[in-house]
Amino acid sequence: MPTLTLPAEGGCRCGRVRLKISAKPLLTMACHCTGCQLMSSSTYSLSAAIPADGFEIIKGEPVIGGLHGASRHYFCGYCMTWMFTRPEGLDWFVNLRPTMLDDPAWFRPFIETWTSEKLPWATTPAVHSYAAPPAIEEYDGLVAEYAKTQA
């Protein structure tokens, strides 16, 4: 399987917003919640939790979209591509949609969440599955386990 080469760049569908990551993901995920299904127009959304100091917008300016709630979902204001999310109270990472990167072939979800809402036929290669999000206390262990798979 291909590996992530850093720094890595990517952008929205139209190219008006470009980004760069310079840090490896802390964790990779697939979310099956109905909100992500609706926002991604797909069976689930994919995320790579990138340390905030390893993420930057290098061209354009994304806009907040989605539900405009506590978690801020960022889109290209022109093509409306959902690019990344900044969860409220968790400013130390950014949930990047990994398919925004120019080469997303390295991506594989390590965990999947909200399987209680997944479409019956939807599957992922995730190592861990959760009916809802994991308990906050579980994330340190998941991050450590994921890091071992990337070494």
Rank of each mutant, 00 (worst) to 15 (best):
Leu67Asn: 10
His68Ala: 13
Gly69Met: 13
Ala70Gln: 12
Ala70Tyr: 06
Ser71Glu: 15
Tyr74Glu: 07
Phe75Ala: 09
Phe75Thr: 10
Phe75Arg: 14
Phe75Glu: 11
Cys76Lys: 10
Gly77Gln: 13
Gly77Cys: 14
Cys79Arg: 09
Cys79Val: 11
Met80Ser: 14
Met80Glu: 15
Met80Asp: 11
Met80Cys: 10
Met80Pro: 06
Thr81Glu: 14
Thr81Gln: 10
Trp82Thr: 11
Trp82Gly: 13
Phe84Tyr: 01
Phe84Glu: 01
Phe84Asp: 00
Phe84Trp: 08
Arg86Trp: 02
Arg86Ala: 01
Arg86Thr: 13
Arg86Val: 13
Arg86His: 10
Arg86Cys: 04
Glu88Phe: 09
Gly89Cys: 06
Gly89Val: 08
Leu90Asp: 00
Leu90Met: 07
Leu90Glu: 00
Asp91Gly: 14
Val94Leu: 07
Val94Glu: 04
Asn95Gly: 05
Asn95Ser: 14
Leu96Phe: 00
Pro98Glu: 00
Pro98Val: 00
Pro98His: 02
Pro98Lys: 01
Pro98Arg: 05
Thr99Tyr: 02
Thr99Ala: 03
Met100Lys: 13
Met100Gln: 14
Asp102Val: 08
Asp103Ala: 06
Asp103Gly: 04
Asp103His: 10
Trp106His: 05
Phe107Val: 06
Arg108Trp: 00
Arg108Gln: 05
Arg108Gly: 03
Pro109Gln: 05
Pro109Asn: 06
Phe110Met: 02
Phe110Gly: 03
Ile111Phe: 00
Ile111Gln: 07
Glu112Asn: 09
Thr113Ala: 11
Thr113Leu: 08
Trp114Leu: 12
Trp114Ala: 03
Trp114Lys: 09
Ser116Asp: 12
Ser116Trp: 09
Ser116Ala: 12
Glu117Ser: 12
Glu117Gly: 01
Glu117His: 09
Lys118His: 08
Lys118Gln: 12
Leu119Lys: 12
Leu119Arg: 11
Pro120Met: 05
